[in-house]
């Protein structure tokens, strides 16, 4: 167990160092990317350029710049933005984390619950009209781009039908703090949760259905039938239980990526100032310290959620335990 944890930590360190170097190099070492020219603005005189270079430390060698940046992120925590000088990056990321976590965890609960329900019902009624209907519904969910769906949701709930009984409860866009206003937090997030989850509900429902149907062909399902168990019990306790492994693998990947900032489209559409939004704005202004901090945070979560998946595997599949 200790060895596994150490190995995980080592892996995480490796990923973080690799990604940070890559981001750093892309920013500084790509041809034509002179950050001081960009910061100084158009038609800046050579004196100003030189001043900028000195003031931001761009005159030092690359590895020194890299090490100073890492020190400022991990040790002193006082890394400041290149664009808004004096704006501290690390606290900004920590402020954005609860927003992203609220959005993604809520959506994850929705997509796991509905994904399992849809996949199981479709597999149980395979070949019937209900199965076909659910699968088409899933496909529709997968096909709708989240930014489009989000805008349509906003149009409907914030504007066109906002004054009807159906959507009058929808608060204006933006994030409410869970500790000061839990009710507002919940209400503002309902629409974003569903918008983000719909794609995954369709995807997970279809994947689970396929896995279940495969599992139902297994010998142990025939044994379970020969034991005289009910079809429901066979489906839920035998087939579903063994099908959950690939479901969990997928979940680990998607969840990690979303927490790491891949929910950015949803965040932008619903004006939630999460990590995705932070990254997006930093990319627009090419603000390296912010990009670096959010990318490191994202890779941390991707590795972390994959480590969690491995732990869940141990519970799901006894064959992993001894291995």
């Amino acid at each position: 167990m200790l060895l596994a944890i150490t190995r995980r930590l080592g892996q995480m360190l490796f990923v973080l160092v690799g990604i940070s170097i890559l981001v750093f190099l892309i920013f500084f070492a790509t041809p034509g990317a002179d950050p001081s020219a960009r910061i100084a603005g158009r038609n800046a005189s050579p004196e100003i350029l030189e001043a900028v270079r000195k003031s931001f430390g761009f005159d030092q060698p690359f590895y020194m710049q890299y090490l100073i940046m890492m020190k400022k992120i991990f040790v002193t925590g006082d890394l400041t933005s290149f664009v808004n000088r004096g704006w501290k990056v690390v606290p900004a990321v920590f402020e954005a984390i609860p927003v992203t976590l609220s959005l993604v965890i809520g959506a994850a609960v929705l997509w796991v619950v509905f994904g399992i329900i849809i996949g199981t019902v479709a597999a149980a009624t395979r070949g019937s009209w209900l199965d076909k209907f659910l699968m088409v519904l899933g496909l529709v969910g997968i096909s709708m781009p989240v930014y489009w769906l989000g805008e349509v949701m906003n149009l409907v709930t914030q504007s066109r039908y906002h004054d009807t009984w159906m959507f009058s409860w929808v608060p204006p866009l933006g994030y409410k703090n869970i500790s000061t206003d839990p009710r507002g937090w919940f209400l503002t997030l309902i629409i974003p949760w569903f918008t983000l989850a719909i794609l995954y509900i369709g995807l997970y429902g279809r994947v689970l259905r396929a896995n279940l149907i495969e599992a139902l062909q297994e010998d142990y399902v025939r044994t379970a039938r020969a034991k005289g168990l009910s079809e429901t019990r066979i489906l839920l306790r035998h087939a579903l239980r063994t099908s959950l492994t690939s479901f969990v693998t997928l979940f680990g990947l998607d969840f990690g990526a979303l927490v790491g900032g891949a929910a950015l489209l949803t965040e932008v559409v619903f004006d939630l100032h999460g990590v995705g939004m932070l990254t997006y704005n930093a990319l627009l202004t090419l603000d390296l310290p912010v990009i670096m901090a959010t990318v490191l945070y994202a890779s941390f979560f991707v590795v972390l959620s994959n480590a969690l998946v491995d732990v869940v595997y141990i519970f799901l599949d006894p064959r992993v335990r001894t291995a």
Partner: peptide
Amino acid sequence: QDPMTALTPV
């Protein structure tokens, strides 16, 4: 026939 696959692995 095949006891390897006749029992649910989990």
